[in-house]
Amino acid sequence: MIEANNLTKTFKDKKRGVVRAVDDVSFRCEPGKIYGLLGANGAGKTTTLRILATLLKPTEGSAVVAGHDVVSAGSKVRAQVGFLAASTALYGRLTAREMVTYFGQLNGMPDGQIKARLKQLADELDMHDFLDRRCDKFSTGMKQKTSIARTVVHDPEVMIFDEPTLGLDVMTARAIVRFVRDCRDRGKTVIYSSHVMSEIEKLCDKIGIIHDGKLVAEGTLSQLSERYGETDMEEIFVKAVGGEAALLAAAEKQA
């Protein structure tokens, strides 16, 4: 379960002054459901997810993840969260086995449990061929599989995906999407951010559209479709954020 209440995050920027990267955002993600966070680049998706993963502290508001407060119980939250982002890389000089084992240890798992979990993950993700090779020699597919294993080694309740398919080839991206669905089917709480409309449309049970730091619309695909009178996700998105002009203005503000 994730509950975000009036999350706000401001940054100081030399050129732009105080920037409200996330502005009063509230939402709930239920176990066994995928919550999609849809927004253009720089809309505030990554900042929101980093707050939920306790990498950043909210300036205002609060969030409860897996029953713990993100500000006061950061390490308890992280113990129940698997965070996978395009920006979370692997240690190139470690093998896949060492990488996954290291994160098992960091999560305080005993050696026997890590071994059993690694075997199970390697079976599920078909990693046995490259388990003892160094990550810097991996193809993107192998890297992504190893990253997934790293993310779920401690079997977290909550999964946070920040644009996990960014820059991946079709096959690898499909494998990720399949894995995200698996997580939902196992009853995990999943939040998934992307700027790719089709992915969000296919995958998510509930969609939140974020624009310029604000959550401008929220609902199931059919609810959103009804509200904006469109069936195409892209059209819904553009209407939700206030038209193309608003998108353009936001993009210019960032530059």
């Binding site: 993963a53 990498l55 390490s75 308890k76 992280r78 113990a79 969260v81 965070f83 982002a85 920006s87 979370t88 890389a89 692997l90 240690y91 190139g92 994160f103 960091l106 999560n107 305080g108 790293r150």
Partner: peptide
């Protein structure tokens, strides 16, 4: 630079 810092910070360690 290599993007592993964020990965490491995701672990429950203080």
């Amino acid at each position: 630079e290599r993007g592993t810092m964020e990965t490491l910070l995701c672990s429950p360690l203080d």
